[in-house]
């Protein structure tokens, strides 16, 4: 009987550890302790902009193309090729842009943080920091979280743009069942500013969880260079699952009871 519950108990335990650790980081930000190291916050934000934005936009661009062709072929098959904009608008803004943003955040930023902080942990640099009287959680984790909070909303809004552009290219320029004006008429009718806000909230929830999880796995890495690799791989498992679950909860919360479409009453 004990064996049966060992695995779920292990999951619960590590989940509890993660939540406790995240609460510490959030506490550092809420109590403004992190502003002691505001220079480091800006440096982390800069690193994020320079090293990760292009890759994120690239992935979102490809998924925008994908939404475009699926929408164009689907709407052709139901006999309303002029309405490909509906599919593209909903597919891009509400679902796949946040999800792909989450995937690439997990892959590029999340694992990057684990690798970086993990190697600091196993080469005893974090202990050195604490000997000098600098809190490792504040200096390494809270600064990274605040840095990403500063930068990521803008990165995400631009990646929505990349997705829209790609869908336009796929539907109008590549498949070509609908004119540019006809496409945009429908495309803009089926979305409004609150949709963008909801989509942004969904993506930011994903991004914050990913950064926190990355910090946790990096900060608690053990077992030499090999341990860093294993921790990186483990963080990816957690992040993939949480991206999907957050996406689902967000959709249920924001659009579950209200389709927000300009049809009917």
């Amino acid at each position: 009987m004990d064996d049966l519950f060992a695995v779920p108990r292990g999951w619960l335990e590590s989940f509890g550890e993660i939540v406790k650790f995240c609460a510490r980081i959030l506490g550092d930000i809420a109590s403004l302790r992190v502003f002691k190291y505001f220079g480091e916050v800006l440096r982390q934000a800069g690193i994020l902009i320079v090293s990760s934005t292009l890759v994120i936009w690239g992935l979102v661009f490809i998924i925008g193309l994908q939404c475009g062709i699926e929408g164009a072929y689907f709407d052709r098959s139901v006999g309303v090729p002029a309405y490909a904009g509906v599919f593209a608008a909903w597919c891009d803004l509400r679902e796949l842009v946040p999800l792909c943003f989450g995937y690439m955040m997990a892959a590029k930023v999340g694992t990057g943080i684990v690798a970086e902080i993990g190697s600091m942990r196993i080469s005893d640099e974090i202990d050195a920091l604490e000997v000098m009287g600098i809190s490792g959680v504040t200096f390494l984790c809270a600064t990274r979280l605040l840095g990403s909070m500063l930068v990521l909303p803008f990165v995400y809004l631009c990646s929505i743009g990349a997705g829209f552009f790609a869908s336009y290219l796929a539907v109008v320029q590549q498949i070509g069942d609908v004119s540019s004006g006809g496409y945009f008429l429908i495309f803009w009718q089926f979305q409004n500013p609150p949709d963008v806000l909801y989509s942004l909230i969904k993506a930011m929830a994903m991004a914050i969880v990913i950064v926190l999880v990355g910090c946790y796995y990096g900060y608690t890495a053990t077992g030499g260079p090999v341990g860093v690799g294993t921790a990186t791989a483990k963080s990816m498992v957690f992040n993939i699952v949480s991206v999907h679950v957050i996406g689902m909860l967000g959709t249920q919360l924001f659009w579950g009871a209200n389709p927000r479409a300009p049809i009917g009453g």
Binding site: L59, G112, A115, P225
Partner: peptide
């Protein structure tokens, strides 16, 4: 050294995602 394996995992998963999506399209 220490950062090598973690960095390799990071790069691998980024390249794999991009390649998968491009191939999918």
């Amino acid at each position: 050294g220490a950062e090598g394996v973690g960095r390799a995992v990071n790069e691998a998963v980024v390249i794999a995602f991009l390649a998968i999506f491009a191939f999918n399209y």
